[in-house]
Design a protein around this nucleic acid. Sequence first.
DNA 1: GCAAAAGCGTTGCATTGGCAACAAGGAAAC
DNA 2: GTTTCCTTGTTGCCAATGCAACGCTTTTGC
Lengths: 229, 229
Amino acid sequence: MEEYYPLLMSTSLFRGISLQGVQELVGCFKPQVKRFRKGEILLLFGYESHDVGILLEGQADGIKNTPDGAEVLITHLGPGDIFGDVLSGSSLKSPVTILARTDCIAVFFPYDKIIHPCQSLHFCHTQLMQNLVATISEKYFALNRRVDLLILKSLRAKLCTWLLEEAARQGKDTFSITLNRAGLADYLNCERSALSRELNRMQNEGLIELYKSSFKLLDKAALANQAAH
Amino acid sequence: MEEYYPLLMSTSLFRGISLQGVQELVGCFKPQVKRFRKGEILLLFGYESHDVGILLEGQADGIKNTPDGAEVLITHLGPGDIFGDVLSGSSLKSPVTILARTDCIAVFFPYDKIIHPCQSLHFCHTQLMQNLVATISEKYFALNRRVDLLILKSLRAKLCTWLLEEAARQGKDTFSITLNRAGLADYLNCERSALSRELNRMQNEGLIELYKSSFKLLDKAALANQAAH
DNA sequence: GCAAAAGCGTTGCATTGGCAACAAGGAAAC
DNA sequence: GTTTCCTTGTTGCCAATGCAACGCTTTTGC
């Protein structure tokens, strides 16, 4: 477990906590480390869970099955990403399945240990609880941004908004993304073909420049303007 | 303040906490009680806040301004409803404005007092922290359900899904709602006219029965079936 | 009690974007 | 090296639905 302390310290759950603090907390919580083979399930849709999971190694996806049996990608997880946090403190069922895309190692912290300050009242425990709340809140805000995108009426507006946000997030006007076209279409809730068509139009209009999965914003003012329509 | 203890005990933040516990916590936190006149602002869009608010009296709305200046209703709050909770533990700006629709009284609990177990280690404090996490998580899940609705492709599917969920939530197949047509159209992200048109069609097809803002589900199997398309 | 505003339904029209089908290039599997 | 699959682009067609306009009814404000 020790080898993962630096990774833990870089996660949103342990940020601001010293190495010593992490050691104390891990010693106190006795979290379980589990290995998963590619294709195995870390967290199953429709079940309760009262553990906060952190992916230590490998890649996993949060997926959901639509009524007609198709599989929708919700999130992608890499080392250091947290899962099950929103779920662990509620009595609700998981809205997603977390599926290992490669062999994975994850560690599971029992929620009730996190939320109960123990006798020894570790100084860092308060920080951990704050971090838990902040982590969940951030997921709420991320979802909220997605809702803001989804309620835009035109695909053009969605794309403009998304491009500007992504540029701001990456801090540059030329950027590339990991999502492929189908994934982006899912995220924006549109057809892949319609997405291609619209990106093409925007390129022709001189708003953006495309090369594979990299984007270059040429006219941010126009983009911002069209984001409102 | 004492007069509101029963109301507090019925909120999601204080549920499961005894009257004595509420007294201890209130005594310890010294929350501020504020009065607002109709039209005044309880929480302003774009600002940080580190208080958890509970509406004690009156009615308030969570609203957001669209780029083109219009006002979109996000939530409606009545006595006992919590606001600012998701915000208080993060360093982000409020995505909404909370606006008093009538004269209001609200109480504000400082987040850092909630999250820091104090010296006297009140037994009920742990419960309160759990409740805070659960309250935020519930808001996340509510938003998540909305996303699930929004990504459905057809208005018919959205309506079927929403009707079934609402019936389940209210525990009966005949129910009425507080949202008006425009509000429901907003929630489902469609045109008010299109909503009317579709509801009418569904009534003609014998799926539902309408009377003003009350709905009667006549064929839940068919509704469930069409929710998938 | 009256005027103004809000809520709801209705309809015609124009457009968006969903759907299906196909092609081409590149990556992966064998 | 060959085959298969995956990803992306492209295009025609058309149904769903956004938009605008109007009228009726109910509610609110004065």
